[in-house]
């Protein structure tokens, strides 16, 4: 059975149908890609899965549980962690404290040695340890994205949602990102769902790719299949999006 099953999810904003009857499945242990032109509904789907947005209809089943009945603050306990398209860290706090907030559900209220150890271990895994005591505000953008990743990983999720992890990174950093995603999938035993505009990255790391356009799912398949799909090519050619 799939680890994540999105079943006919619809979400409207006024007249806009951001998600229209979207269905897809993610197998445990795989890296799934979610692509589509700007405004296709990718972030909205992540927001529905993590309960930041309500769905108008449909189901999201994670590990046999309907996530749409789980409270937003409980999603992480269920085993789903995420990063944000526009980096949402706690700027006035240190790197270590940011990551410790990510471990909120795993640490005891007082005297949380285990939590600190967990956080330090996670920072180490992302080679962020030297920055542990630095305040987040003012750090370079690429580093912020890594800290956000650490904050998501520290909860030891089963499913990790990455919303444009390559956005704003330089060429070299994007190159390293692919290897990093594969490494954390293995080391942290993850299933990854990846929203990305960087097609090279998507094609190189994803096992399966799902394509949205104007809120509708228009294609699904291996990277090679999706790249050759006429509907996908049409969707990208029909916009200014520099991709494919």
């Amino acid at each position: 059975m799939a680890l994540l099953e999105v079943d006919q999810v619809t979400r409207r904003f006024g007249g806009i149908v951001a998600l229209s009857d979207v269905s897809l499945e993610l197998e445990e242990g795989t890296i799934g890609g979610l692509i589509g032109p700007n405004g296709a509904g990718k972030t909205t789907l992540f927001n529905v899965i993590t309960r930041m947005y309500k769905a108008d209809s449909g189901r999201v089943v994670f590990d046999g549980r309907n996530l749409l009945r789980v409270r937003p603050t409980r999603v992480i306990r269920a085993g789903v962690a995420r990063t944000f398209q526009n980096v949402a860290l706690f700027p006035s706090m240190t790197v270590l404290d940011n990551v410790l907030v990510g471990a909120h559900t795993r640490v005891r209220p007082f005297g949380d040695r285990t939590g600190k150890a967990l956080a330090r271990e996670t920072l180490e895994a992302l080679t962020l340890s030297p920055l542990a005591d630095r305040v987040v505000a003012g750090l370079p953008f690429g580093t912020l994205k890594q800290i956000e990743l650490a904050r998501a990983l520290v909860s030891r999720p089963r499913l990790l949602l990455l919303d444009e992890p390559a956005g704003g990174l330089n060429h070299e950093e994007v190159g390293e990102l692919g290897g990093l995603i594969r490494r954390i999938r293995k080391d942290f035993d993850l299933t990854v769902f990846l929203v990305e505009h960087h097609m090279n990255l998507v094609m190189s790391v994803c096992d399966r790719v799902h394509v949205l356009n104007f809120g509708q799912k228009i294609a699904e398949g291996t990277p090679a299949e999706v790249r050759a799909d006429p509907a996908v090519i049409q969707a990208y050619l029909g916009t200014d999006s520099a991709a494919a």
């Binding site: 993590t50 930041m52 937003p72 603050t73 409980r74 999603v75 992480i76 306990r77 962690a81 995420r82 944000f84 949402a88 860290l89 706690f90 700027p91 006035s92 706090m93 907030v101 990510g102 909120h104 559900t105 904050r151 909860s155």
Partner: peptide
């Protein structure tokens, strides 16, 4: 205080 959405996603 720094970010309610991110805090919520972290289970706070």
């Amino acid at each position: 205080r720094d970010g309610e959405l991110a805090a919520t996603a972290s289970g706070v």
